[in-house]
Each structure stands twice: as structure tokens, then as C-alpha cells.
Design a protein around this nucleic acid. Sequence first.
DNA 1: CGCTAATTGGAACGTCGTTCCATAAATGTC
DNA 2: GACATTTATGGAACGACGTTCCAATTAGCG
Lengths: 226, 226
Amino acid sequence: MAKTTQRTERRTDALSKERIVEAAIEILDKGGEGALTFRALAARLATGAGAIYWHVTDKNELLAMATDDVIARVMLVREAKPREAIRAIALGLFDAIEAHPWAGAQLSRAPWQSAVGEIFESIGSQLDALGVAEQAQLDVASALVHYILGCAGQNAANATNARLLPPGTDRAAFLATIIARWTQRDPAGFPFLHKMASRFRDHDDRAQFLAGIDLILAGAGTADKN
Amino acid sequence: MAKTTQRTERRTDALSKERIVEAAIEILDKGGEGALTFRALAARLATGAGAIYWHVTDKNELLAMATDDVIARVMLVREAKPREAIRAIALGLFDAIEAHPWAGAQLSRAPWQSAVGEIFESIGSQLDALGVAEQAQLDVASALVHYILGCAGQNAANATNARLLPPGTDRAAFLATIIARWTQRDPAGFPFLHKMASRFRDHDDRAQFLAGIDLILAGAGTADKN
DNA sequence: CGCTAATTGGAACGTCGTTCCATAAATGTC
DNA sequence: GACATTTATGGAACGACGTTCCAATTAGCG
């Protein structure tokens, strides 16, 4: 018996799921979501498109694996205080999605990905220690995850737009354009947007993201504990 | 002078932005996002693809207009109490997205759409009356909108999956499958998901969505006013 | 070495968004 | 009413994509 089931590498440059995902992430980071093509991937790996399909079933699977890969690196947070742990997880996700916007788009588009399961678990498992009643834990975890996914989608869209805009355009000008477009049709009909326009322009995305997390945690009745 | 700039209809079945958007919505509602094609649209309108491009610049624009159209019908809420107004807007959006899942996907993918501006305004303009401090209004409105967009994307994904699954599959089985897939890799590593699995299965999406809204409003310090 | 199964690379298929263009219909001008 | 001009139409054609197919190559094994 004792079949040597041991997998020996065919050759050093052999294709594998890992190498394919790695190359896909590089392409996505450099060129954005639209740049990931089986042809581009095949060119970068110096092979044909058909060979890739031997290791990967789908473009969906490929995107899912790339996203899981990028997100998993961030979920390793170990903070003692539950409140800080949740904030650290959230901020880690925010930074990861800012670095890899395509992953944000993928998360909000396919919320049943295993990465979302890990996010759910990481956040939810802190709620006990935070003092959230067991009855409310699902609601709180779900609200946090949905809020994070919403921000993820928005960040991804921002990055995509930034890629399409002339490179010199800065963020303030971009936001001003958006608000102008929103309010131009009926200037009197958008008092709130007008009131907020200035604050909108020079706000810090990251700080505002965190403010949303704190808002939800505060709503869970954990304002001044932990 | 007095040029008769008055537009007279070319003929009764003439193409127009309105008719195109209307047909697009019908296709999207019946067949989902993947069914909207310029060819399918041309067939339904009994014309050619090129003719559509005379009225519409892009598929993006088409999807944006369809989404704006479907969302605008919902933003007309007029409630006296600000808290109830926000809840009514949110629930209206939830129902609209459940009826037109493709619109949810589009919203979370393109958050600078004018529909999002209207959502922002509708919600934000209630915060004064709700007693939210002006300094916090942007944070609260932003958290609400992002949460809603996150749920929108998730609902859209659910609907798409439901379309792909065998028609008999019910929601409980689907959720059980997801959770099983999430937790199978390392059963001991996902205590929270296991603890929540049963509650996950038979929860009411709409109620949970509203719970998230209330959570954020509670965090804004408006728990027992209005 | 020779056999089988795993793996490769590239051609080919069908579909999509979009562009192009030769018409046709409405409008403006005399 | 006839002609020129703008507005609008519909279908052919282009290039890119995801995916499938398959002949050729290579690794493992007796």
C-alpha cells in the first residue's frame, strides 16, 4: 500500500490556484475591476485562458477568492477590549477596501461570500463581552455588517470614479460636482444638502466611517461601558 | 420670429427616453439584471439598437434612469413626526428594492446617483426636528444612508441567487446552506454564527432592517423623543 | 520505456456594448 | 408644393469578453 499520494510539483512555474489568485490581485490592484480578464490573466501567467479554467471554475470564483484573500489578512485583530476590537476590525476593513477597492465592490455585491461570514463572526463574537443582550446581538451584528458593506460599496465606487476622472481632479472638486449635480435641479428642494455641503467637502472619510460604527454601538446601549 | 419650437410628436409609437426607460424596467423586473440587453430592449421596442443610442448615451445612464424612476416613487413620504418619517422612508426603500432588486444593486454600486441624493436629503432634513445636534447630523444621515445601501446590495444579491437556485428552494434551506458553508471549514472557530444560526433562519428581513434603523437613531440620542 | 491521467495553450463560439452608416421621416425655407 | 436640413431610425459590423473545446504536451508509475 502506502501510495505516495504526495503531490510533487510539476515544475517550478506550474499553474496553481494560489499563483492565479496572486496574479489576479496584482491585475486588480493596478488596473481596477475592469482590468481583470482571462486574457490579461493568461498573458501575465504566460499561458492560455483554457489552462486557467482547469484550476478555477469561474470568474466569480476567482473574484471571490481574491476578495477572501485580501480580507482575511485583516481579520486577525486581537484586542482585549471588545469595543476596541470591533473598531479595529472595522478600520482594518476600511483600510483594506481603500487599498483594494474592487474587493469592496465584490463584498457588497456577493454578501454570502465566506469573507462576510468571517466579518460577521469577528464582530458578533465581541458583543457578549460588550454587554449586548443576547436577544439584540443578531440585530446589532447585522446592522454593523450592513453598514460596513454599504461603506465598502461606496468606497469602491469612489475609487472607480477617481480612475475615470482626469488625474489632477482632487477630492474636494469631485464632491462639489456631485453636490452641485444633486441640487441643481431644484435648489430650494434640497436644504439639508446645501446646509451640509461645506462639511461634506472637507470631511475625513475614515473618521466619518468610524463615527457610524460608534453610532450603532451607542444605539446598542453600550455607550459608556468597556 | 416666433419660431414654433413646439415639439410635435413624430408619430404615436415614436421612441423617447420615457418609453425606453419604461421598457427597460419591465425587462429588469421580469428577467433580472442580466436580462437587460440593448438587443432585448430593441426587440421589445420593435426597433434597432442604434436607435436607442440616439436617446440614451450609455447602459449606465439607462440603469441610472431606471433606478431613479423606481426610487423616486417612494420618496414622497409625508409624515408629521420626524422619527416616523425616517422609518417610513426606509421601509419604502426596502419594499421598492425588494420589488426591484436590480435597483438595489445599482444604488449600492453607484452611490452618486441622483436617487441617493434624494434619499440623503429626505432623511437628513428630518434630523433637525428629531433633535440631532447640527454637528452630528452629517454623521447620522451618512450612517443611515450607508446602512440602507448595504441592505440594498444584500437584498439584490438574495434575489439574484433566488433566481439561480431551483425554484422550489425556500429561504430557510438557502440560509442553512450559507451558514453551513461559512462554518464547515472550522466548526469551532465560529461560535457566534453557530449560536445565531437558528435565529438567522426564521428571522424577518424587513423587521431586522427596521431594527438597524432604530439602532442608529437610538445611537443618535433620539431614543425616546418624538 | 510505455501507459494513463493530469495539465496546458490557443482556437473557436456565442453574446454583449457600442459605433457606423445608409436611409427615412419631420421640419424649415422659399 | 418643392427642396434642403435636421432629426430620427434600424440593422450591419467591430472589438472585447467569458467560456468551451480539443489536440498536444507533460508528469507519475509499473
